[in-house]
Structure formats: C-alpha cells, structure tokens
C-alpha cells in the first residue's frame, strides 16, 4: 500500500513541475505572438539570430 503513496507523491511532484514550467513560459511572454512563432520555423536563416 505504501507504493500507492509513493506513486501519488511522485505524480503530484511531476505534475506540479509541469505546471510551474507552463507558468514560467507564460510569464516570459512566449504566448504573445502565436502567429509569428508559427511562421518563424519556416524562416531560412543561416546567420546568428539577433
């Protein structure tokens, strides 16, 4: 039965980490320009990005 407790704890920690990462990505503004991000993968840039 203790394995259930370990599993519960583990899944919560991992889920919480996922949530934390999502909130960070939201705060760093990655969702501001969804159209632009979608188009940028098609750009052909060879030089270093600014």
């Amino acid at each position: 039965m203790t394995v259930v407790l370990y599993l519960l704890f583990g899944s919560l920690v991992l889920g919480g980490a996922g949530l934390g990462v999502f909130l960070w990505s939201l705060r760093s503004g990655q969702y501001e320009d969804l159209e632009g991000s979608a188009n940028r993968i098609l750009f052909d840039d060879d030089g270093p990005k600014r």
């Binding site: 501001e32 188009n39 750009f43 840039d45 030089g47 600014r50």
Partner: peptide, 24 residues
C-alpha cells in the same frame, strides 16, 4: 514579410533587437 523586415534589420550592425510580433 516578417522574415524580410527582421532580416533587413538584422544586417544592420547598430541594431540590437528587431523583432516583429505578427499577431499584434
């Protein structure tokens, strides 16, 4: 157009950031 503007700006040595937000 986004690519063109950013590329043109990127080639100028004075530019630090030239980024177009396509949504807004």
């Amino acid at each position: 157009c986004v690519w063109l503007i950013e590329s043109v700006l990127g080639r100028d040595p004075a530019v630090v950031t030239g980024r177009v937000n396509m949504t807004t």
